[in-house]
Each structure stands twice: as structure tokens, then as C-alpha cells.
Design a protein around this nucleic acid. Sequence first.
DNA 1: GGGCACTGCTACAACGTTGTCGCAAATAAA
DNA 2: TTTATTTGCGACAACGTTGTAGCAGTGCCC
Lengths: 335, 335
Amino acid sequence: MTLKELAKELNLSFSTVSKALRDSHEISIETKNRVLAKAKALNYQVNPLASSLRKQKSKTIAVVIPEVVNDFFGPVINGIESIAQEKEYHVLIYLTHEDMQKEVAITKLLQNGRVDGIMMSLSEQTSGTAHLEALQEKGIPLVFFDRIAEQMDAPKVTTDDYNCGIKATEHLLENGCKRIAFLTIAPNLSISNKRMNGYLDALKKHNIMQDEGLILYCTGDDHKNNELIRSLFSSPKRPDGVFASVEKLAISTYAVCEELNLQIPEDLKVICFSNMQTAAFLNPSLSTITQPAYEIGREAAAILFDLVEKKGQRGRIEKRVLNSTLVERNSTKGR
Amino acid sequence: MTLKELAKELNLSFSTVSKALRDSHEISIETKNRVLAKAKALNYQVNPLASSLRKQKSKTIAVVIPEVVNDFFGPVINGIESIAQEKEYHVLIYLTHEDMQKEVAITKLLQNGRVDGIMMSLSEQTSGTAHLEALQEKGIPLVFFDRIAEQMDAPKVTTDDYNCGIKATEHLLENGCKRIAFLTIAPNLSISNKRMNGYLDALKKHNIMQDEGLILYCTGDDHKNNELIRSLFSSPKRPDGVFASVEKLAISTYAVCEELNLQIPEDLKVICFSNMQTAAFLNPSLSTITQPAYEIGREAAAILFDLVEKKGQRGRIEKRVLNSTLVERNSTKGR
DNA sequence: GGGCACTGCTACAACGTTGTCGCAAATAAA
DNA sequence: TTTATTTGCGACAACGTTGTAGCAGTGCCC
């Protein structure tokens, strides 16, 4: 069913039909009704490709994230989708799998009209920003969330990572920890960086000597991470507290503790940035810093759509910081 | 950067440039190289909208699922994306939030060239199939996975739900359960139906009287579900085993047990269909039927792409059943 | 009754591609 | 030399829309 076929059925020119469908004032009410009725009867739907090409608007956005099997990015997508559905936009999903090469390849695909805007959370590996600037040069609105490109001139939605880094560390200190390990991935990632600075500054504030050996730089490889953690936990200078900057490192910690027969929280207290739904039911229940993932998605999407639709008021907001909350559970229980 | 602009730069007609870029045999090697070099220099990218319109292929598929914050659908998307990336297809995500009206609205959006094919897992509420047949009538390939439309003539990828229903029930029986409750959502959903039949047949096989009161029909509302479960668990004819047909009902079960101070597995054993990554670290660790979610995604995507690309060999496979595995953990430990 | 403004429609040129056809020039065959 | 055949390129018509410009016909005013 195309416009032309529909027009032929109605004995009208196809431009008349097009206008009638879009409720143009140039068309009489009777004609409009006739067209609308016929369109419904024949189940006519405009061809979005043709329409987008003509209007130079795709009504589509891209969401580029490291992974989707993740208690943080899942709700973020949910938030994005809730706004997209409202605004009648379509959502393309791209996964980088923490691989910068893939991230670059994906940005290439998005350079030419496929999308009206992009939301992004950077991959672990990402260092340069040339591929991101290329998008901006093409005039494609770009909004970062969570793992942002600090140095770029674009709206960013994050949580208060630095403060939470302090809060989490102090929470462990208050519960009696003396030697707190910090588990992180990709230190060049904005979130890792800020969370670690919170950790370091909290130690400084409480006059605790920082021990470089207590900072573990983990990777995307779970096996290797477990090994790193195992060797730290087996060493004589074993920590009595662990602050994991991402969810999966807490899971690794739990796994290694089980293996080495270390009791949480007696031998080791654990806190972690996490949006795990089942944190309360873990053994022991896991204390977390929980990010408002859904709201991050909604907020970032709202900013992007305002930018796309050039209302521009919101686009001025260069940076929006939402607050995470510390949820205290048994894994950090003091003696 | 459009083809025409590029052609002007090169002093060639734009059709020549177009052909050169697609490595047509009609163009001399020198010209091709000249074009390719210039295209790279000017960072030319074909406009996918125009190309799709012309070729009547969007190189895009849609994935329509109930939700994304979910340990099953997450890995499925991963599997789908892995194949899509290989085949250079783009992936649109649509969430129904278990709402049939939304599912219908989404299918309307997909009727006219936006996508070359669709992968779907039905919403809880979905009853009719008119909206799905409409897609087929438009000639859009459609593949179902997990929550399939039994009666439709389309490829389907599922797991051995019926067998696993039997296995899970028998596992509880073997561990000493006498009164096994079955927790389900939306009984008209293919998976619920088959899992329940497995449960019922297992009881029959072991000569156990079925008690209608032990079957709980839950909804999308977690609060209400908790209430239903609470009242079942508080009743004098409390079950000593629970078989939850979907993940979230196991979480509700854990929550209610904590509330009522019921010990798992002593007072009550629990097994559940679930792909939770942290099942092993729950308190107690949760026995699960784990579905090969990633493979389901890959398999369904592979079938869809074969259909889209009309190779048709695989499209003949009307139904593909992958095996889930029962993972025994502490929540079903016998006395 | 000539000029003027509406009303309601049609024609047509984009949007950026792709693929068919045609056509010179160069080469090969007769 | 003449006639086929090939090679390399350009013209052009789609794909299905949207928006601008044009153009009849009607009604209105001075």
C-alpha cells in the first residue's frame, strides 16, 4: 500500500492524499474524511523510510552501551524507552562489549542520517574521542550517561560517584575496617576514576596510609579477576574490607570468599556499586551503592530529545548529577 | 557528504561514483581507486535511508519483548546482537511491558518497511494473533522465541518447558516434598502452560493428588503476588515445596519466607526457572532450571536472517527446541 | 465588471540512492 | 575497411514521501 495506490483508489492526486492524511488546511473536510476512511480500510501506513528521507528526520535514536546483561544498563534502557515511546521515537541498540574498536565502528554506522541523536556510555577501553567528535561535527546530538567523556562538550548525566566513593569507604571505616581494598576496572573510565578518588580522599581524611597493593585493577575477564582477587585475599596483608566499584567484582569477591572459606562480614566486609535486584537475598545480603538507573535513562533521554527537537532549553544543561543511595546490609555489618 | 557532492569533486557522474563504491565491474580500476580514495578523504558514508528506500531493504530487524530488566531477555538480546553485528544488521528494541495494547501498537509501527524481519516473545496479556498475522500478510518474516504463539505458522525457538516442568517437580519430590505449589503468571502464555502441564503430569505419574489451591496465578504486580504467596504460606495447608515458573516469583518467595520466618530448605524447598547470575550466592543458593538464553537469541536470529535473506533452508525448521538444565543448589536440599 | 482574495485541488521537484539502458570510443573479428 | 563486441562511463527513472508553486473556480468588494 503506497500513497499512489491509495490515491488511485480515491481518484485523487497523491499529493492531495498526502496532505489529507497529515490534516492540511488546504484540503476540504469531506475529502479528508474520505481519504482517512479509505486509508483505514486499506490499512495504509506511511513508509517511514521515504518519509524520513524526505523530512531528513529518522525519528530514531541510538543507544550505545557496553553490555545489556547488567542490572544497571537494563533499567537505563527502560527509562530511555519510556520516553522514546512517549515521543514516538524508535530505539536502536548497539553493544560495544567493552571494545573500543567496536565503539568506533558503531559510531561510523551512525554518521549518516540513520539516527537523529545518540545516547552513549563509553566502553572500558575507550581512550580517544575522535570518533565521538566526528559525530558532533556531523551535527548529531550526543548525550553521555554514567561512563561519560569528561573532556567533551556535550550533555552528561551521571551520579555522584565521587561522593559515593567517600561514603562507601567511610561506611567500611565506621564498621571497623582498617585495610580497605578498592576493586576497579579500567581506571581511565570516568566512573572508576571518580569513585577511586572518593576512596583515596576518604582514606586521607581519616589519616589512613594508602597502600597501592590494595588497589586492584581488574579487567573484562572474570577468570583473571578471580585470580587477582584470590591472590590478594591469600596474601598475608589481606584486606578486611572490599569496596568494589562495579557489580561483577562483588560477585567475584563472593566467589573467592567461598573458595577460600572467608566469612563475610566477619573476615571481610564488602560494599559495591550495584543495582542487583537480589542484593538483599544474597548470602550475606550485600551492602550497595544503588544508582537511580531508570531515572538516569529518562533524564538522559529527555535531554537528548530536547536537543533533537532543538528546543534547546534543556540542552544548555551541560551536566546533570543524580544521587545514588547507600543501602546498608549484612555484608558490612560491624562486629 | 552526498553522492552528488562527491561526484562533483571527482568530475564524474554520480552514477559512476555509486558504482565505483559498490565495486561494479563496469568501472575501471583506476577510477574505482580514485573514487575510493576521495570517499575516504571526505569521509563519505552512504545514506542508509536513501539506500534502504531504493533497495527496499532496511538492514534492520526488530526485537519485541516484554521487558529488558530480566536475566533471561538480556542474554537473548546479546545472542541476537552477536549475529546481527556479524551480518551487519541493525537492531531496534521494543518493550511491551506485558501489555497487549502496546504489543499491537508496536506491530503497527513495523508494518511498512522499517524492518526486514521481527523477533518476538509475547506479552503476558496477549491472547489474539490478528496483529501478528497482519505482519505476516505484509510479508515480514517473523520468528518467535520462548513465549511463542503456538497456533501460528512461523518458526519458533523454545526450550523443553514441559520436560523441565516434570524434572523440577520430580526433583522436589525426590527431596521429600509432599505438597508442591506451582507459581505461575498468565496461564495462557505458552511457557506457563507447558511448564504447568509438566508439573501436573509429574504429580500424576507419582500418584499425587493435585490440589487446585496449590496453584497460584500471579500477575505483573509484585505487591499483589507477595500477598498471594503470603496467604498461601500462612494457611494451615502450607506447601513444603515451591516450583516457580518465572524468576521474579522465586524472589517473591524468598521475600515472603524471610517475612514469615520460614526456613529454606527446611520448611520449604524452592526451585525456579531462572537465569539469575547470582543464584549461587543467594541465601540459600537457589536451585534453578536455567535456559540457554544466549543460544536462544542466536538461534532465533540465525533463523530470522535466513528467512530474510530468503535462503529458506533454515526457514523450513518450524520449531527448534533447546534444552534447559536443572542446577541443583541448597534451596532444594533434602533432609 | 474588473480586480482581489480565498478555497481546494494538482503538478512537480526534491530527499540520496541504485540499477537499467544507452552511447560513445576502443578493440576485435570478418 | 566494415561490422560486431567489449569497455567505461553518463542519463535517467525509479523508491515513497513532503512541501512549494501553480491554477482553476468561486465569492466578494468597490
